[in-house]
């Protein structure tokens, strides 16, 4: 059987715990309490790649299988050939990015001249955005330019973003934007 580093750690861990419980002196009680379960023991384990810089470090995400199903721990993936378990201060804090009380959790809308956000449904938001896109596009669509050349575009809608999307999302996003006739398509690589 070929063991990867993480299997090895699991096995040696079990052994270490076994030794710890046997042959100890007066402080057995405390050791047992420490040698017991890791908080991540019953968690679902998934791998990810850090969302910050482009080194592409691997991390392991421990998601609770009980209760709220939220993230309990995110740490460097020792089997990832680039970072081999290491993470910087940002990578080490991804759990707090995910489980953050400041996150947006509902679509919101700000009406013209309003001074506040209002929570709206996804349905309402997406329908209204689709309406705005269609209206602006149809009103501004240029089939030909000043020279009479075919251009089939709108310059009244612009899009910026995003290096924060996955590859597959980038691809479908650019295809949607280009099908609408946008030429103002830019993102983080330009700035």
């Amino acid at each position: 059987m070929k063991l990867d580093r993480r299997d090895f750690i699991k096995i040696s861990g079990a052994t270490a715990a076994g030794i710890a419980v046997s042959g100890l002196g007066f402080d057995l009680k405390q050791v047992k309490s420490h040698a017991g379960m890791l908080k991540t023991r019953y968690a679902k384990e998934s791998t990810t790649i850090c969302c910050y810089c482009a080194v592409g470090c691997g991390a392991i995400v421990h998601t609770s299988k009980r209760g709220d199903g939220r993230v309990m721990n995110i740490e460097g993936d020792p089997d990832h050939v680039i970072n081999q378990g290491s993470l910087c201060s940002k990578g080490s804090s991804i759990k707090q990015l995910v489980e953050n009380e400041n996150r947006l959790t509902e679509p919101m809308y700000r009406a013209p001249y309003s001074d506040k956000w209002q929570t709206v449904s996804w349905d309402w938001a997406l329908n209204n955005i689709a309406d705005r896109v269609k209206k602006t596009r149809d009103e501004s669509f240029e089939k030909t330019n000043a020279k009479g050349q075919t251009v089939n575009r709108t310059t009244k809608i612009a899009s910026v973003g995003s290096a924060a999307l996955d590859n597959e999302e980038c691809w479908i996003y650019q295809s949607l934007m280009r099908s609408l006739g946008l030429v103002y398509i830019e993102h983080q690589a330009r700035i």
Partner: peptide, 18 residues
């Protein structure tokens, strides 16, 4: 990180060090 050590993991700080 005594709990980690007993389970065969390195302390969190050591694991993170690049």
């Amino acid at each position: 990180c005594n709990d980690r050590i007993h389970n065969g993991l390195k302390p969190a700080c050591v694991t993170a060090c690049p």
